[in-house]
Nucleic acid binder design. Structure first.
Lengths: 252, 252
DNA sequence: CGCGACCTTGACTAGATTCAAAAGTGGTGG
DNA sequence: CCACCACTTTTGAATCTAGTCAAGGTCGCG
């Protein structure tokens, strides 16, 4: 793994405030409060479950760099991936108001994770109601993504689901400057993909083949290249509205 | 339809504060603020979509009486039910922080709906940060239910999904006193059920037959009777933890 | 009484899983 | 440096689950 420069807290806060401004204005005082709320930045190698199911975290995690997933297991061992999170995302901000984690959070690549103690978030919510609403908004956008995934699992074909996931990840990664033309890196196995879209790895592979043969996307190891965005959107029946809080205006 | 006495605002607020106390204490001032935030109570006959997809509501809705669903349609006409809401539930509190509804809300039975203007909620969030966090918590519990449904659609068998839905609805209705022994009323068609659990109505019917023949539940018109809760829980691989905010302690 | 909405069932089809095997990829240590 | 190993990808064949199509039955209501 190539060396990764540690993200500076200042730049993390910069990115975070830029994002929260999609909800509403963020004052200098509020920005400062966020800065002070950032306790530390931890690093995790890929595979680490850095938030455990059933735990009661006393901090919330913001991904500064890397790629993480929310995962849950059924008694029988089946796994469901509930969401993917990229740099700039809070991945368990809801644990600030929910007493127990109903799922784990796992680093899928090497991750840098900024920690915000709940005690500091309480202070923010006491002093800066508008900023508090902005954080609430962030968790509401996560819920909107959950709903879109519900529609996918409930009513989209397997082909559409894979296409939809690629659409979503492309636009989210583009918004944070992690794409080059139509290419982005998605370091997950086909088994991970299957656990996200409710399919077996074998069937994911077949649908990938179909997407490849239709000339829509090309996947080479972890590099995904979208050959035709209109074709991909159509294949996925994709409507970006639900991602308003996570992507660029012009991509909506 | 038999006449339904209109719920008194005072008793609605009583029920709401009781629920929010699961998150933390609610002071007399806070309770009073909630009372003043309740603008009016509207009634809707079954089938009414009283919140429209794509709209930007200026109020949030609390179900005072009845049964409602969150629904979304795909371009092809497929429908997915994203959540069910019973008396005492906010069904679109997230619209307070999210600019646009990504789904509609539909009355499934006759509903009485209490309306809280967003302007009043802004005031609450400015003056009562703790109460504001309690409302945030309520939306976070909704998100936890979304996640449980994601697991169902992604990884549970069709048989388990139906059993799981009955488990969830039974415990939620029991918590608000809408059950008699093991019986509750669920006024939805098998098609609605299918749109909630990602199946065709025909297949829902078959799974219902299996549940019946296994002696687990009996369904007569809208009356669902759970013949063996342990068997139902087992069939659903049900773990109530995610419902902590919606059900009684002793049912966890 | 007859109509429409919903439920129920059977026969057939399509989509996804399971099982199995082979080939590719990257990392490790001798 | 290369042989080996674990993991992942790819493909085929058989099986099973859920969907589709179609017909009859039940219930409540005008």
């Amino acid at each position: 793994m190539r060396a990764m420069p540690t993200m500076q807290p200042a730049s993390i806060i910069e990115t975070l405030t830029a994002k929260l401004q999609r909800f509403g204005p963020v004052s200098a005082d509020e920005k400062n409060a966020l800065s002070e709320a950032l306790d530390r930045v931890d690093e995790y190698p890929p595979g680490t479950a850095f938030v455990i199911e059933g735990s009661s975290p006393s901090t919330s995690c913001l991904i500064a760099e890397g790629f993480a997933g929310r995962v849950r297991f059924l008694p029988g061992g089946e796994r469901q991936i509930l969401a993917f999170h990229v740099a700039g995302d809070f991945c368990d901000l809801h644990s600030f108001v929910l007493p127990k984690m109903d799922h784990a959070i796992q680093a899928l690549t090497h991750c840098q994770v900024a920690k915000f103690p709940h005690s500091a978030l309480v202070e923010i919510s006491e002093k800066f109601p508008r900023l508090s609403r902005a954080l609430w908004w962030d968790t509401a956008v996560d819920a909107a993504v959950h709903r879109e995934w519900l529609i996918g699992l409930g009513r989209r074909t397997s082909y559409e689901r894979i296409a939809h996931l690629y659409c979503e990840m492309f636009l989210r990664l583009k918004a944070i400057g992690r794409t080059e033309d139509g290419t982005f890196s998605l370091s997950v196995t086909q088994e991970d993909l299957g656990d996200a879209v409710g399919l077996t790895p074998v069937h994911v592979n077949r649908m990938l083949k179909q997407l490849r043969e239709a000339g829509v996307v090309s996947v080479i190891r972890d590099k995904v290249t979208i050959l035709s965005m209109p074709a991909l959107r159509k294949a996925a029946r994709f409507d970006a509205a639900y991602l308003a809080g996570r992507i660029l205006e012009e991509d909506l």
